[in-house]
Design a protein around this nucleic acid. Structure first.
Length: 553
RNA sequence: GCCCCCGUAGCUCAGGGGAUAGAGCACUGCCCUCCGGAGGCAGGGGCGCAGGUUCGAAUCCUGCCGGGGGCACCA
């Protein structure tokens, strides 16, 4: 019996008590099942009696006693105790608990998927680095976290489109083009221009692609360097992200908003809503009406539209594509955008609390030899996605970035994460998977297949450590669901570390394969299922994080 | 000045109101005739401070004190 099934059982018990007139409450939609920390508190606990006590008008312990009476005798439940202020502690029958292993193996890759977010159409935008340079460490964090979040949301039943918005218009791109042009002519980097080896490389590629380009007029040259340079840079960004295991459904060009008239349409739409005014020769959106700390310019006095105006058009475009909710992941240096973004959503007539979600992630510092690597564009110490992967490998990089809460600034220790020892969390988890794989290979060599689910004596899993492992496996779907709802992929990583530890403890006290000339027993088979189930969950969990689950290390 | 994030064990961090606050590392002492010791067991140690809400607060609210980051007719 899984926690989800137990939740239904308890809910039914409440309904039954109400039906019989021994309890007078509204039956709750959801009954929370917890895994008690103290093993003396049974396999599972619920605070349902504490929650219902007030409406029932009776002491929590009395409500708990009523429900305990209903639960005793339910198949699969071996004991129910009322404890503390009114908790119900439930102990499952050994075979019912052991069935979790069978369910996991039977579900395979699907174990962990739920429908808690079914019906939601989400647009998940992340990375969105401008094609003026390679992806740096900040974008890399979002690549790891955003990709994991996308997988989590999908696993929880949401319809997710992963989107990358790239600015291929505006002043930054002009500076990029001018920097390429200067490099091609061997001139110094222009003021506010981009430096770095990649500028020279891309400039050379542009010339190689279009040999006559340097013969054109200065304006035409700049245009060609812009077009080809952006294409080359963006191709490079896509390639490094793909090597990192991150691929987007949509790569959205800001330029198209200008070219299709979407910008004018958005401004017109905002004007219709009555929130646009003109001052100092510029066109403004009165975002202060919706809680922003100052009004924002849409069209500058020189006639150029602002980045903010493009944001409006882009948001509108997403909504017109049918997304219920626009989720945007930004770095902490962009937190000031939240106010104006919410205001623009409200100004367009949507509800910012429903249709928009902005996730802010704190910054990443790299540490090597105990010393922080301060990033500085001027000092040339910008750390790139590729640098990180080169230093620790893609698996460790993704895991390290995804295992921390996004609210936490992280100091990523390159020494630690490149180490092949158990103080490196990703190796600890991967090692557990490799160890199980090795054991299952050993079982196969001994001619011990898992066999049919119906032939497993799950009651044979009676050891304390087996119970611990089964309960841990039973948590996985809830971990995935809550990580998706809370937009917190790091919870999956932490869970996997805990699961790996629980497995090692089981392994240490429970011999799986027969030794020497011993015969296999029902316990052998049941434990093999338990091992296979653990491997499945480790694999599924690592897959969510985009990290490999090696069978050998 | 205003805004955002953080403050939990010696260190790096988990803990979406619930029972005795956890993990890894580090430290001390242990455990292989045996499936991967890249493992396990035991021990010491902690919620920045002060109020509030609640039957119950590390968790929610307010203030203060520390640390990090951000304020543009830039993108």
């Amino acid at each position: 019996m899984t926690p989800e099934q137990l939740s239904d059982v308890v809910r039914s018990a409440v309904a039954a008590a109400v039906e019989r007139g021994v309890l007078s409450v509204a039956v709750p939609d959801e009954v929370v099942i917890e895994r008690p920390k103290n093993p003396e508190h049974g396999d599972y606990a619920t605070n349902v009696a504490l929650r219902l006590a007030k409406t029932a008008g009776r002491p929590p312990r009395e409500v708990a006693e009523v429900l305990a009476g209903e639960l005793r005798g339910v198949e699969g439940v071996s004991a129910v105790d009322v404890a503390g202020p009114g908790f119900l502690n439930v102990t499952l029958a050994k075979d019912a608990l052991g069935q979790i292993a069978v369910r996991v193996v039977a579900a395979g890759e699907a174990y962990g998927r739920t429908e808690v977010l079914a019906g939601q159409r989400l647009n998940l935008e992340f990375v969105s680095a401008n094609p003026t340079g390679p992806v740096h460490i900040g974008g890399t964090r979002w690549a790891a976290v955003g990709d994991a979040l996308g997988r989590l949301l999908t696993a929880s039943g949401a319809h997710v489109t992963r989107e990358y918005y790239f600015n291929d218009a505006g002043a930054q791109i002009d500076r990029f083009a001018l920097s390429l042009l200067a490099a091609a002519h061997g001139r110094p980097v222009p003021e506010d221009g981009y430096a770095g080896d990649y500028i020279g490389e891309i400039a050379a590629q542009v010339v190689a692609t279009e040999p006559g380009v340097l013969e054109l007029s200065e304006a035409d040259q700049q245009e060609r360097f812009r077009v080809l340079g952006v294409d080359l840079m963006f191709a490079e960004i896509k390639r490094t992200l793909a090597d990192f295991g991150v691929v987007f459904d949509v790569y959205f060009s800001e330029r198209t908003l200008h070219e299709t008239g979407a910008l004018e349409k958005a401004v017109a739409r905002l004007r219709e809503q009555g929130h646009v005014f003109e001052a100092d020769g510029a066109v403004w959106l009165r975002t202060t009406t919706f809680g922003d700390d100052k009004d924002r310019v849409l069209v500058k006095s020189d006639g150029e539209t602002t980045y903010f105006a493009a944001d409006c058009a882009y948001y509108l475009d997403k909504r017109e594509r049918g997304f219920d909710k626009v989720v945007i992941m930004l770095g902490a240096d962009h937190h000031g955008y939240i106010g104006r973004y919410k205001a623009l959503v409200a100004a367009l007539g949507d509800d910012p609390d429903v249709n928009l979600e902005i996730l802010i992630g704190q910054l990443v510092n790299l540490v090597r030899d105990g010393e922080p690597l301060r990033m500085s564009k001027r000092a040339g110490t910008v750390v790139l996605l590729e640098d990180l992967v080169a230093a620790v490998g893609a698996d460790a990089a993704r895991y390290a970035l995804a295992r921390a809460s996004v609210d936490q600034q992280i100091d990523l220790d390159l020494d630690l994460w490149s180490r092949q020892t158990n103080d490196n969390p990703v190796f600890y988890v991967q090692y557990a998977h490799a160890r199980i794989s090795s054991l299952l290979r050993g079982a196969a060599d001994l001619g011990l297949p898992l066999g049919e689910a119906g032939d497993v004596d799950t009651a044979a899993l009676a050891h304390q450590r087996e119970g611990d492992l089964l309960r841990a496996l039973g948590e996985f779907p809830r971990v995935i669901a809550s990580a998706a709802e809370l937009r917190a992929p790091h919870r999956v990583a932490r869970y996997l570390e805990e699961l790996a530890g629980t497995y090692h403890r089981f392994y240490d006290s429970c011999r799986v394969l027969p030794r020497g000339d011993e015969e296999a027993t029902p316990v052998t088979t049941a434990r093999l299922w338990l091992c296979a189930a653990t491997a499945t969950v480790l694999r599924n969990g690592l897959a969510v994080l985009g990290v490999s689950a090696p069978e050998r290390m």
